[in-house]
Amino acid sequence: MPINPKSWAADFTEQLIVGDEHVPLDRVVARHADAFTELRELGMTWGGISQLLMRAGALRADGSLISSDQLRVAYARVGKRTASTEQKARRHAKAGPARAKVDAPPLVTDLPSAPASVAPSDPEATGPQDVSGNEIEAALARLNKIGPTGEKK
């Protein structure tokens, strides 16, 4: 259903004040971004939209009229924020599965077989092995003794 410009302007004007407090113009413009798009597609100019709001009694926080330039700039800022948010969401969605792969390693690991120069004490011990909590704690303790640059603390 096409927008009714007069009733829309009345709704916009009502949302400029909540209680006795003025709502920032950008926030009200953001709520009505689709209506602005539709009004512009109908052929209205920013000056015409400003006149609609003036006739509906819309005022800025300081009591002055809302100019066509203020509406145009606020609408452009809302569009930029929306585009930026959508870009971030797309980047986050692409990065999401990669982050999921960074889980802690399982306690049971497949250990590689010993290098050829070192013969294992038990030939059957080169396959999958369980790692005990004590072995993990000992390994962490050794790692904590070595700083990030490889120097011993």
Rank of each mutant, 00 (worst) to 15 (best):
D26S: 10
V28R: 08
H32F: 11
H32I: 07
H32Y: 13
A33C: 13
A35C: 13
E38W: 01
R40V: 06
E41Q: 09
L42Q: 11
L42A: 09
G43A: 13
G43H: 13
M44G: 01
T45S: 15
G48P: 04
I49P: 08
I49K: 09
Q51V: 11
Q51M: 13
Q51A: 14
L52N: 08
L52K: 06
M54P: 02
R55H: 10
R55W: 04
A58G: 15
A58K: 09
L59C: 12
R60V: 01
R60H: 10
A61G: 03
S64M: 11
I66T: 08
S67K: 12
S68P: 08
S68E: 15
S68L: 03
D69S: 15
D69C: 08
D69H: 13
Q70V: 04
Q70N: 04
L71R: 10
Y75R: 14
R77S: 07
R77N: 12
G79S: 12
R81G: 03
E86H: 04
Q87P: 00
Q87W: 01
Q87H: 05
A89G: 07
A89V: 12
H92E: 09
H92N: 12
A93Q: 15
K94V: 14
K94A: 00
K94G: 02
R99Y: 08
A100V: 12
K101Q: 15
D103L: 12
D103Q: 14
P105Q: 07
P105W: 04
P106F: 04
L107Q: 08
L107R: 12
L107D: 05
T109E: 10
L111S: 11
L111P: 02
P112D: 04
A114G: 00
P115G: 01
A116M: 04
A119N: 02
A119S: 12
P120I: 05
P123L: 02
A125W: 05
P128C: 04
P128I: 11
D130L: 05
V131I: 14
S132N: 03
S132W: 07
G133W: 01
G133K: 05
E135P: 01
E137P: 07
A139K: 11
A139C: 12
A139M: 07
